[in-house]
């Protein structure tokens, strides 16, 4: 699932090499801490957080298949 997040974010940003993801696996939820270049934060979040919501929903599909929930934190 980490690969899924990295794939999407790299397609989205101007500086793909700056993309970092930390994953924390819980019993019921997986938390991803995403870090992107300062100039790319807006691209990952989108207007009114629409892009971030879409990324969370898409990660949610992969998580639901493992009966888990997913959290995504975005830093830059």
């Amino acid at each position: 699932m980490k690969e899924l997040l990295i794939f999407i974010v790299k397609e989205l940003v101007d500086e793909p090499d700056a993309v970092r993801v930390r994953e924390r696996d819980g019993r019921f939820a997986i938390t991803f801490e995403l870090t992107v270049a300062p100039g790319d934060a807006g691209k990952v979040i989108g207007r009114s957080g629409r892009v971030a919501k879409a990324i969370r929903d898409v990660l949610g599909v992969a998580a639901a298949r493992e009966r888990k929930r997913v959290h995504l934190d975005i830093n830059s």
Partner: peptide
């Protein structure tokens, strides 16, 4: 259809 709409929005963005 909300998840499908998110996937579609994300794909169009990319």
């Amino acid at each position: 259809g909300e998840t499908l709409r998110s996937l579609q929005f994300l794909l169009n963005t990319l």
